[in-house]
């Protein structure tokens, strides 16, 4: 397999990394997610890393980069399912995963994304900005 599948659930993109990631597959995932956020107007990205036995500096950087790219494209990213041994190792390695929100499991991650997209929708006041109708129209 040379691509990580991206599933769309409502306005959230779900990525579950089930393979020992080669560097070029990690890079392809960054690009695919960027494309998919725009193509589907997704508001959130949930990345499940519960199958990953390690997160090294390359994969850590990929997670931070994905979070930054999605933020710029108006989507929130939550990384879920990190194993405790991976968390301990990451911290000792010196990686802080800056800007990446985390949750313990997929359920909590979904709840976190639902809460933050709701808050952002409340902040939008359609009568003040003409452009908003075209931004957030699709069925929410």
């Amino acid at each position: 397999m040379d691509r990580v599948p991206i599933l769309k659930i409502g306005d959230i993109l779900l990525v579950s990394i089930q393979v020992d990631l080669q560097d070029h597959i990690a890079l392809a995932l960054q690009e695919d997610l960027g494309d998919k956020i725009v193509a589907t107007s997704a508001r959130g990205v949930l990345i499940d890393i519960s199958a990953l036995e390690i997160v090294d500096s390359f994969i850590g950087r990929m997670l931070s980069t994905i979070a930054s790219i999605s933020r710029v494209l108006d989507a929130e990213t939550v990384v879920v399912g990190m194993r405790p041994a991976v968390a301990i190792t990451l911290v000792e390695l010196g990686l802080s995963l800056g800007g990446v929100r985390t949750a313990l499991d997929v359920d909590r991650g979904m709840a976190m994304l639902a809460a933050s997209t709701e808050v952002r929708d409340d902040e939008l006041e359609p009568d003040e900005h003409g452009a908003i109708d075209t931004v957030s129209a699709p069925g929410d």
Binding site: D23, I54, V55, D56, S57, F58, A85, L93
Partner: peptide
């Protein structure tokens, strides 16, 4: 388990 994870992570960095 934690020491395995540390070793494998170090090996990954050094192999790269």
């Amino acid at each position: 388990l934690v020491d395995q994870t540390k070793l494998v992570t170090a090996a990954s960095e050094l192999a790269r």
